[in-house]
Design a protein around this nucleic acid. Sequence first.
DNA 1: CTTAGCACTCAAACTTTGTGAGTGCTAAGA
DNA 2: TCTTAGCACTCACAAAGTTTGAGTGCTAAG
Lengths: 347, 347
Amino acid sequence: MDLNERAKKVLQAVIDNYIQTGAPVGSAVLARSYDFSLSSATLRNIMADLEELGYLTHPHTSAGRVPTDKGYRYYIDALISVEHDTAGISRQMEQAAVLQSGEIGQLMEEASHFLAKLSHHTGVVVAPAEPEGRYKHIEFVRLRGNQVLIIFVTNTGAVLNKLVEMDETVPQHELNAFSSYLDEELEQHSLSEVRQRLVERLREEKAGFFRLLEQTHRASQEVRERDSDKVYIGGASQIFDSPEFADIEKMRSLFRAFEDRYKLVKLLDKTSAAEGIKVFIGSENPFFEMQGCSLVVGNYQAGNVVGTLGVIGPVRMQYRQVIQVVDYTSRLLSRILDERLKKGIER
Amino acid sequence: MDLNERAKKVLQAVIDNYIQTGAPVGSAVLARSYDFSLSSATLRNIMADLEELGYLTHPHTSAGRVPTDKGYRYYIDALISVEHDTAGISRQMEQAAVLQSGEIGQLMEEASHFLAKLSHHTGVVVAPAEPEGRYKHIEFVRLRGNQVLIIFVTNTGAVLNKLVEMDETVPQHELNAFSSYLDEELEQHSLSEVRQRLVERLREEKAGFFRLLEQTHRASQEVRERDSDKVYIGGASQIFDSPEFADIEKMRSLFRAFEDRYKLVKLLDKTSAAEGIKVFIGSENPFFEMQGCSLVVGNYQAGNVVGTLGVIGPVRMQYRQVIQVVDYTSRLLSRILDERLKKGIER
DNA sequence: CTTAGCACTCAAACTTTGTGAGTGCTAAGA
DNA sequence: TCTTAGCACTCACAAAGTTTGAGTGCTAAG
């Protein structure tokens, strides 16, 4: 909070050095490597102060200093405002960025690997809660007497489907008629509007298509739940390269966490309320205590569809770089999705 | 090969014990725990013989015996023929087996977790190269001037789709006409037959639908490649519970292997030519050297659609149990798929 | 052919010792 | 009042030494 200029610089130097080397930073190294024109003894005093204020700690009496979570927090808050250079590194990313898969799931998968590759940690992408695009067409295919397959198509080419069992046999031509009816009724509405409209129609409709309408409505909801919030994890094995996870127990709990996709979604969703890139350091982590993990999260969006993506790594990570990577990737993904959307909207 | 009865029993006992405890088996333990009515000295002699023949080894001079891959091989070959009891354990499985997801991808995902849970190792399921079911319906949806979404539906409710860009604008009513034409032409054929027929039509057809037919054919192939051979991995973190993978390097290479899905498919496919359950022990492993891993693989099938599934774990695994689990799961999955197929076929 | 006995081996666990990076404190200098 | 040299002290880590005990191979007697 109220640190004088000199103390700030020392803190920054300690953290920089620690992030680089991973070893506790001693006063001598500090005096040598950075030109404070101060002796190690003075630096020792300053570091002692910083420790008192809670920004640094001691692993043990005669070791160098290590940043606390609070220290990292300060470091990053001071940092983020400064950094917005997207020139050099960004170009390198541009080259690596060949995200052009047609299928949306595959695109997200690739994005997660992209994050992992550039950040050297684990990349996570959560698919949007709502598929992109607007209602374009519905199709009912009768399979067996009572089985009907309901297929929703959006103008961006997303296809959602659900198999339902009807109480009674409905002939195909009736299904077709109903499909045409809905096509007119729902055209160009977003999927959440579609669900709403279906409810309204359900209230009005007395007979005839009632059962079918009901099933369609239910399908529209289930399909949404099933296809949304999918999690794509890329480069989980990067964890092995972080010496802080050398401890088997830590590693195990992390991998367990990765397998529990549901919790992961919750975690990321919870963190991603606001705009821009956010960083969660160690214990700040809002959900389960991911041992010594930091989280860099961002959003991507196209139209009113919003998804989350981020990087999970050790507290000691190269925040500058990782923040840039997440930032870049979120923009990239937004752009790609936006293009798909636009293509679909011109009709 | 030509072991006398006594030697066989000793070998079996050594391996049993080693699988249980994980520690090298000494002659004293053997004499105590199993009633050979032989002294430890005699057992030592027998074990020395078995070592000479390559079934056992020494980690170092003064340690107990450990089975070699060859030893395991012998053990399993002698074992598999014997075991076919599906009574006791199977019932327990039956209870745990609540695989009833509607969506096929989800079903496979669940199956992989089922395998992992019961075997206490990592479960793997490879989706069939060809989706189940027979051609039922095709739908063309025009999105934008030249963009057309092609949707295949099978009689089991599988939905495959591909977005294509046409050279010229095709009005929706023409698309509908073409769809009706194909529906008559292709009804009830398997998807591989469909592809073949499309090629034939391509040869004959001179004008009109030619471009559309071409695109449809291409889509039918791409869709197949994209949706097939997906790999579902369940319980990768079980690896942490095997002390043999305590070595970080081993663990890393395993997780890397899991991330490289393509290689995994190759591996499993290569092993699954024949019927029944197969076991690959350590170095027998036909593809990359998965460090100290054994592989228990089986097939599942419905109609002429065949997929592979299996368990990956340390060489020291409870083969009896794992074999049963794989066997059971493959039957279970076959049955579920078969039912889906039948439901679809009665039209 | 089996077995008791015995010397020998060697990994793993524990202990000991040395080393050095780093600290905190004090007192002198600017 | 702030800075700095000096010095005693601390403590993780590594290397070397020590102990322990499970287990072997061999031999000679039953």
